[in-house]
Design a protein around this nucleic acid. Structure first.
Length: 522
RNA sequence: GCGGCCAUAGCAUAGUGGUAAUGCACCUGCCUCCCACGCAGGACACGCGGGUUCAAUUCCCGCUGGCCGCUCCA
């Protein structure tokens, strides 16, 4: 593959193609856009839907066989984006993740306000000295040196209790002079909204920051209605919203994104087994849809980077063009233990225990959560598919030669841009061309084939321009097959199928086109 | 949220204090028996708002958006 550590694909190349060919646009572009939000065009929508459907097919309808050869039971769900705000109190999203932060204009450091203590002098005009919790010695040393005063004469308060008017007199921990700290700011990562016509704290609600909680809150409903037995899974695909501080890197970190999440409920004694199983299975799945293993890896989280809810977590990482030679997150497989069910049991008062009728025991299931970004997946699939090649010009013999992005072709060759989507994910599965548009019989026959194939597959019809130009257009949107109706079609009822990657052509009877496509991944 | 750089057609670029050019792509017609490069024609742009000026796409300020670095990323 060319999208490797030696030749990472520049993001601008990909975003330009996405815009040029109708995959992804900046949202509300005619109004100047909006940072962190993206719109999916006709082809991007098709690609995203195909990826979503592949996930659903492979996880809900035909999940992998379990570690002991058993058939897994996974059901689907689609919960509301706006839920009772208590859900987010229970999940920990309201309380724990909106720490006020303070910036230092001079040192460019950022501090959690609750970690920043301030020494306040008795003197109303004196300098206030700030320090990090645990680093008081440094502040006291500075007080003796700069203010020539006894630190014991100062009162110590968190920065959040310092009046804004006094901030100019506060000397930051890493600054060379006072007055460089900004006012503590809330970084609330959940979008707020208000239910009903009147807005006020009483009807405050949040846009969900993850789809997972909708699964936990419906866990009892599923248990009571679906005759599922432990272990089992609930899967959901949907939009989530996070007010990211810095949306960056195209659709990689956006404020509105789409998740594909599975919550796997299992007996606590078996949770490690299932954690290992799902971590393996998910890595394999990304390979199965055409992501090269060289650009994928598993990374286990260090204990100190684990989120509040998880006891273990592994990421499936991909080598994006903008992270290369490093990797970035694509999917996280978290061992959430009993955290969520415990929280919701406590906050809602609803019993979340599972009653095992075979052993007559009650248990609070543990949860393994493979959570992947659908929109990140789209970025991975785009990045992985993009290729530039050198193709011999004119009548010269030879197939395409792999090239690096941006490289100029040698004499006698021209550049070809091709998106090598797997047929399963390709937005357009096949394009049907009449060889010439000024021959009504050929055009009629091509249209007839198009009308037939479109009842089964997403296919294009194109009669504009030279045939070579039409091939290249389809190459750039990743259509795996082009089917051309020519003069032989009129004589022998045959067509020519041209394959995107090899550019090779096969002639076969029209009656066999469907079977041919079916054996080539469609 | 901070700092630096940047913003011209669908994409990539050029250029100017007196409203703009090129390549590719796109549309129409003709030509054409399989890989973008046959002919003729055509449509499409100076991110938004203020200021300076007789006149601003150009200079200044603000905003929005983009890239890079820092920060953040439950």
């Amino acid at each position: 593959m060319q999208n490797n550590s030696d030749h990472p694909l520049p993001l601008e190349t990909l975003t330009a193609l996405c815009k040029r060919r109708g995959f992804i646009f900046q949202t509300s572009e005619i109004y100047g856009g909006l940072n962190g939000f993206w719109d999916y065009g006709p082809l991007g929508t098709a690609l995203k839907n195909n990826l979503r459907d592949a996930w659903w097919q492979d996880l809900v309808r035909t999940p992998p066989i379990g570690p002991d050869g058993e058939i897994l039971d996974i059901v689907g769900l689609d919960s509301a984006i706006i839920q009772n705000p208590r859900v987010w109190e229970a999940s920990g999203h309201v309380g724990g993740f909106n720490d006020p932060m303070c910036d230092c204009r001079e040192s460019k450091s950022r501090y959690r306000a609750d970690h920043l203590m301030v020494y306040v002098p008795a003197d109303k005009d004196g300098t206030l000295f700030a320090c990090l919790v645990g680093d008081e010695a440094r502040a006291e040393k500075r007080i003796r040196k700069e203010a020539k005063a006894d630190p014991a004469a100062y009162t110590v308060k968190p920065v959040t209790e310092i009046p804004v008017a006094d901030l100019p007199r506060v000397w930051g921990p890493d600054a060379a002079k006072p007055g460089t700290l900004t006012e503590p700011r809330q970084f609330n990562l959940m979008f707020k909204t208000y239910i009903g016509a009147a807005s006020g704290e009483d009807n405050l609600a949040y846009l969900r920051p993850e789809t997972a909680q909708g699964i936990f809150t419906n866990y009892k409903n599923v248990l009571d209605t679906m005759r599922v037995k432990l272990p089992f899974g609930i899967a959901q695909v949907g939009k989530s919203f996070r007010n990211e501080v810095t949306p960056r890197n195209f659709i990689f970190r956006s404020r509105e994104f789409e998740q594909m999440e599975l919550e796997w409920f299992c007996h606590p004694d078996e949770s490690q087994k299932w954690y290992d199983f799902w971590t393996e299975a998910r890595l394999k799945w990304w390979e199965s849809i055409g992501v090269s293993s060289a650009n994928l890896r598993r990374r286990d989280h260090d204990p100190d980077e684990l989120a509040h809810y998880s006891t273990a977590c592994a990421d499936v990482e991909y080598r994006y063009g903008f992270t290369a030679p490093d990797f970035g997150e694509l999917e996280g497989i978290a061992h959430r233990g009993a955290f969520d069910l415990t929280q919701h049991q406590e906050f809602s008062g609803t019993k979340m225990e599972y009653f095992d009728q075979e052993t007559n025991t009650r248990v609070l299931p543990h949860v393994i959560e493979p959570s992947s970004g659908l929109t990140r997946g789209v970025l991975v699939v785009l990045n992985e598919a993009y290729a530039e090649e050198f193709v011999p010009k004119g009548d010269q013999e030879g197939g395409p030669i792999q090239a690096a992005p941006g490289q100029q072709p040698p004499e006698g060759y021209e550049k070809r841009v091709v998106m090598r989507f797997s047929p399963r994910l390709a937005p357009v599965k096949a394009a049907i061309f009449p060889l010439l548009k000024n021959r009504p019989e050929i055009v009629a026959k091509a249209k007839e084939l198009y009308m037939d194939l479109r009842t089964t597959w997403a296919v294009d019809y194109d009669q504009t321009g030279a045939i070579g130009r039409r091939y290249r257009r389809q190459d750039e949107i990743g259509t795996p097959f082009c089917i051309t109706v020519d003069f032989d079609s009129l004589e022998n009822n045959t067509v020519t199928i041209r394959e995107r990657d090899s550019m090779k052509q096969t002639t076969l009877p029209i009656t066999e086109v469907r079977a041919w496509l079916a054996t080539h991944g469609l």
